[in-house]
């Protein structure tokens, strides 16, 4: 297989959520054919630049995003594709680190104290991994001090805060305040969750408000382009 064909096949496998040859894929017909994992190995074996493979991941996920936005894909279809990329990143990441700049940055994420919701947060995590970010998940009901301590230890480029309750979105304000007070002024703070809004993000001093997982990806990619 030529290098271009390998990359085309890889892109197709991701779009179809075809993880490996045991997986049936979006159309249910792909079992027994090479999936994302096999094709990434093939691509690396062929000597394709890991950075180029990463670009292929992005192109594939963009295509998936379009299919989701248009209603052709359901949420689990999109998650299947994101999982392909997330798993494949485990193979690709060490190779990227060996070369120049690795991945796109580190993302620390948590549901704030008092709030036990994690479905939305977990979707965002899968999508971020799919887009090539390293994600550290602190879980649910996380006190502000723990988030600040984790920033110290993990040195993320981004922090994501989730809250699903009107009562706990107030907690976000405290978290943002404590992060800035601790001197982390460069870390970009993303907030999300049903009761939150653009205005609220501005009011509490967060950098971005995200409506959903796709919006998170679009906004974070925007910050990448700007830098």
């Amino acid at each position: 297989m030529s290098k271009n064909k390998t990359l085309e096949a890889l892109k197709h496998a991701i779009v179809m959520g075809h993880l490996d040859s045991d997986d049936e894929g979006y159309d249910g017909m792909m079992e027994g054919t090479p999936g994302t994992m096999e094709l990434v190995e093939t691509a690396l074996g062929d000597g394709i630049d890991p950075q180029v493979i990463l670009t292929t991941f992005n192109e594939a996920m963009e295509k998936v995003g379009v299919k989701f936005e248009s209603g052709e894909y359901l949420l689990p279809d999109m998650l299947a594709s994101a999982e392909c990329v997330g798993e494949a990143m485990d193979i690709l990441e060490p190779k990227l680190a060996a070369g120049s700049g690795s991945g796109k940055g580190k993302f620390l994420i948590a549901t704030v104290k008092g709030d036990l919701h994690d479905i939305g947060k977990n979707i965002v995590i899968t999508m971020l991994k799919g887009a090539g970010y390293q994600v550290k998940d602190l879980g649910i009901d996380v006190p502000a001090d723990d988030i600040v301590a984790a920033i110290k230890e993990y040195q993320p480029n981004y922090v994501g805060l989730s809250a699903l309750l009107t009562t706990t979105m107030i907690e976000m304000e405290q978290v943002v305040k404590k992060i800035r007070e601790a001197g982390f002024n460069d870390v970009k703070i993303f907030i999300g969750g049903a009761p939150t809004s653009e205005e609220f993000a501005k009011k509490i001093g967060a950098d971005m408000h995200c409506r959903d997982a796709m919006d998170t990806i679009e906004k974070i990619e925007g910050t990448q382009d700007a830098s």
Partner: peptide, 8 residues
């Protein structure tokens, strides 16, 4: 898995 049979 991934609700695929359902969506198909």
């Amino acid at each position: 898995r991934f609700c695929r049979k359902f969506s198909r």
